[in-house]
Amino acid sequence: MSGQIKALKAELIKNKYSNILWVTFIAFSLAPIMGGVFMLIMRNPEAMSKAGGLSAKAQVINFSASWNSYFGILTQAIGVGGILVFGFVASWIFGREYSEGTAKDLLSLPTSRTKILNAKFIVYIIWCFALTISNLLIGLLIGTILQLPSMDMNLISGSLKNYLATTVMTILIGTPIAFFAIWGKGYLAPLGFVALTLVFAQIIAATGYGYYFPWSVPGLFSGAGGEYKSKLNLISYSILLLTSIVGYLATVTFWKYADQTK
């Protein structure tokens, strides 16, 4: 256990001055800002008529200027945008050792390779949670500034639960990215994989079978697929969980047993 804590400490030191850290926070904060713009337009009928396409889009997805709609946007940002941003985070955490050339220095140490990877997964989880909390806080701030109608506590607690559940699912589905980073020895393979899952998540969700495609599940759950959310069932969540476990085990096993030539 102390080995695991030391591994985590080492991993945290490594990320101390990562520019990527701030880049992900700034990129992810676009969601509450865009959501705020939506809210602003929804509230102002005059602006709405001018905004044309944007307002049409806002109306189609059934929005009103309320806390509930706003949280809905934030949740969808995680279910859809999170796949991209969390994928970016995982690609960085696991791929950096190869692009920085330090991978070989992590292999023959008293701290086992599994513990080093676990530390990376823990940092990944902390990072992603920090991103979602930051978005929530920015959202609260913007919502307050926009003076959205007072909160209905029941509705809000439901929204928050959805927000949290979407976050957990989106984090879980990131484990295969770690495998691609280690297998591809760098960023390229995992980022390619993220792009691919994103495309497939859209296509498959559009065909109506998204509830069986694990990368579509967080998006559908967040409400980004409208009525398809009701199609999610135990099998959908089981496939997601299974993919996550397989991703984790593949990463650990591969790093432990494969030849390391870079």
Binding site: G3, K6, A10, I13, K14, G101, T102, K104, P110, T111
Partner: peptide, 30 residues
């Protein structure tokens, strides 16, 4: 921990200082 090694070009974490780089391995070597 009975073995120290340097294989080919030595790379370090570019954004960390010398001390911080060593701290990473200080922790990983427990």
């Amino acid at each position: 921990n009975d073995i120290g090694y340097l294989v080919e070009t030595p790379y370090s974490y570019p954004n960390l200082s010398v001390v911080e780089n060593l701290k990473v391995y200080y922790n990983l070597r427990q």
